[in-house]
Nucleic acid binder design. Structure first.
Length: 367
DNA sequence: AACACGTGGAG
DNA sequence: TCTCCAAGTGT
């Protein structure tokens, strides 16, 4: 352990800190659907959904998901498309696929029981250091650190740690701190309390230090620097991609839909055919070329976009221009991922929010 | 280590 | 509008 951290930890009494922290948690903890019991599967699903996602956003998804896939066996046996559909709108869709992959492994390799050792649970797809610690401590009472953004923020203030929490290497420093501070009597509440404190009191901007149960232990408060912590460098700006999107109908009134590749952005989700716009030629001309080359269809397009829409991802922005068109004649379809679907069938697909919005707009104006 | 990977809410 | 985020993981 770094001597620097050692010194800071020597200024705090773990038992007193635990008592104040856990006592507060027992009084103030929110009633959340995944706090009703300690079922490892239920904890697991909630932890995956909560990755980079707000509690309020997760709650309705969690309810629907657990209703649809109440057990490890149910999720293991479900078709992947059903799982993705249940995840529609939640984002970071690889979480859903990784979760099912891991659940299938638990079903087959561990007789359906979520492993309780750090090594085994960490080997599961989608279970990183945070999630492993969260499941182990909350479901099994194992005193492992579960260091997320909340924990790094809270402890950076309590211990006055000036490491840049945006750097991957910083997590280890906070794990060391948690290993020293954690309650072995109640690791579950200790870890949850640290996160709850970060969510409710020790917030990113304007922390409520006067209401804080561990104020007496807090080095940043003592020094008046709680607003300067944590140190977190911001990431660089996102790039912009001009996208040409087409809603195409054939003579039967079906729509042309495309399934995205199984790797990368929005993997395996469905969409209206879309292409990155190139410099130079007109949008309609480019679209005609693309549709013929990639989908083997000749389309009569409206000359102007039917609607435009920006969609912001974490790392890029789509500036979408959506055109409408009708099929004139078709040759062999070059792209296997493309298919003509009825309205009912389109509704059943998993679309990214950007395309779901376009579809909703389209349906509301054509019915 | 650095970047890809979604979304909706807050200030 | 803009920026930052919210219970991170995979590569």
């Amino acid at each position: 352990m770094k001597e620097d951290l050692q010194l800071k930890l020597s200024n705090i009494e773990p038992e007193a800190f635990q008592k104040d922290l856990i006592g507060w948690f027992e009084q103030e903890m929110r009633e959340l659907p995944w706090r009703k019991n300690k079922d490892p599967y239920q904890i697991w699903v909630s932890e995956i959904m909560l990755q980079q996602t707000r509690v309020d956003t997760v709650i309705p998804f969690y309810h629907r998901f657990m209703e649809q896939f109440p057990t490890i066996e149910a999720l293991a046996n479900a078709p992947e498309e059903k799982v993705l559909k249940a995840w529609e709108g939640l984002g970071y869709y690889s979480r859903a696929r990784n979760l099912q992959t891991a659940v299938r492994e638990v079903h087959e390799q561990y007789e359906g029981r979520v492993p309780s050792s750090p090594k085994e649970i960490s080997s599961l797809k989608g279970v990183g250091p945070y999630t492993a610690g969260a499941i182990l401590s909350i479901a099994y009472g194992v005193p492992e650190p579960a260091v997320d953004g909340n924990v790094m923020r809270v402890l950076s203030r309590v211990l006055s740690i000036w490491e840049d929490i945006a750097k991957p290497s910083s997590r280890k420093v906070f794990e060391e701190a948690v290993r020293y501070l954690i309650s072995h009597k109640n690791p579950s509440y200790f870890n949850q309390a640290l996160m709850e404190l970060g969510a409710l009191v020790c917030t990113p901007t304007s922390p409520s230090c006067l209401l804080c149960p561990v104020q007496a232990h807090c080095s940043a408060f003592a020094e008046g620097v709680q607003r300067d912590l944590p140190v977190k460098t911001r990431k660089k700006s996102t790039k912009v991609i001009d996208l040409l999107t087409v809603i195409v109908q054939n003579q039967q009134g079906e729509w042309l839909m495309n399934q995205r590749p199984s790797q990368g952005l929005l993997a395996n989700l469905w969409e209206f055919p879309s292409f990155e716009k190139q410099q130079g030629e007109s949008a309609v001309s480019q679209l005609n070329d693309f549709l013929l080359a990639d989908f083997g269809v000749n389309i009569v397009l409206d000359p102007e976009p039917w609607m435009v829409q920006d969609h912001v991802f974490s790392h890029l922005t789509w500036k979408m221009a959506v055109f409408k068109g009708e099929l004139t004649k078709t040759s062999t379809q070059n792209r296997q991922n493309a298919v003509w679907l009825t309205k009912e069938e389109v509704e059943k697909l998993t679309l990214p929010v950007s395309h779901r919005k376009i579809w909703n707009q389209y349906v509301s104006l054509h019915s």
